[in-house]
């Protein structure tokens, strides 16, 4: 557990970028990504194409592992523990049990305690985050709404998770039982949050980051790193945008630096408003 959560600590203050080819992985590493997420299609394309989205082809993951020296993450479908076993066999550094892929189980997430490789899971609220932690997740990311280029859902989820943590630190011991019931989360984890004032594992942000200012917004709200999916390789000019998002994440409180790096980046991905989408990935997971 210490080794798994430890890798999450090492990833703080950085940007994890979705990549679909070894070439993109190199661009991400050159831009200063702390890790890459190897997948077959970025969420914006999954959204456009429809159909069932699954774990990536092992050969493609190996190609990306060979191309970069930074950690390589890959996605398994929710509840698809065999995809996770395969990813562990491939030696990926982190597994994302992800709502961006089509869920394989409508009641159960993967029992992550059975694995050596750490897992990251998405959450829209604190209860969901604590259920994933109780299953063994070493890292939580707010889900946001992947493939939209719209930060609004990520903000909602971060505010929900961190707002409830702040409230719990003010609760008395009797109220913690009600909080555990309300959140549908294990009482000992709720009690631990009341004591420490923080989640048991690092909290990162995902889903909708398209600009350096989006990344800094997530960080100022309390995320400790950001995942950028479609936002980089669906923009006009991925390399400088990737570099700028890395700098804005490191210097998230410094508006002068964010202003400086936000220049001359070309157009960001177009993005979609929430009432224009018919499938909300954030609703997947239980």
């Amino acid at each position: 557990m210490r080794v798994q959560r430890g890798l999450s600590e090492m990833l703080k203050g950085g940007v994890i970028m979705d990549v679909v080819t070894p070439g993109q992985a190199k661009i991400a590493e050159d831009a200063g990504a702390i890790a890459v997420m190897a997948l077959e299609r970025v969420p914006a394309d999954i959204r456009r194409d429809g159909g069932v989205a699954r774990m990536s082809d092992p050969e493609m993951i190996e190609g990306i592992q060979a191309a970069v020296s930074i950690p390589v993450m890959a996605k398994a479908r929710i509840g698809h523990f065999v995809e996770a076993q395969v990813l562990e066999a491939l030696g990926v550094d982190f597994i994302d049990e992800s709502e961006v892929l089509t869920p394989a189980d409508e009641a159960h997430h993967i029992d992550k305690m059975k694995f050596t490789i750490p897992f990251v899971c998405g959450a829209t609220n604190l209860g969901e985050a604590l259920r994933r932690i109780s299953e063994g997740a070493a890292l939580i990311r707010s889900k946001g709404e992947a493939g939209t280029g719209n930060i609004v859902e990520a903000v909602r989820h971060l505010r929900s998770i961190l707002g409830d943590i702040r409230k719990i630190t003010q609760a008395d011991s009797a109220e913690l039982f009600a909080w555990a019931k309300l959140l549908d989360a294990p009482l000992p984890l709720v009690q631990e949050i009341a004591e420490t004032g923080r989640l048991q594992v690092p909290l990162f942000c995902a889903g909708g980051i398209a600009t350096p200012a989006d990344a800094a917004l997530a960080m100022q709200l309390g995320a400790e790193s950001v995942f950028v999916g479609s936002g980089i390789f669906k923009s006009d000019d991925p390399a400088p945008r990737a570099r700028a998002i890395v700098e804005a994440t490191a210097h998230f409180r410094d508006a002068h630096i964010i202003a400086k790096v936000s220049r001359k980046l070309g157009a960001p991905m177009t993005g979609i408003a929430m009432d224009e989408i018919n499938q909300r990935y954030a609703e997947r997971g239980w």
């Binding site: 600590e9 090492m10 990833l11 703080k12 203050g13 950085g14 590493e29 200063g32 990504a33 702390i34 890790a35 020296s69 930074i70 950690p71 890395v246 700098e247 490191a250 210097h251």
Partner: peptide, 15 residues
Amino acid sequence: PGGESTTMSQLLETS
């Protein structure tokens, strides 16, 4: 600290 040395060396330059 620990982290990714490639990321850090780049940020040391840009910062």
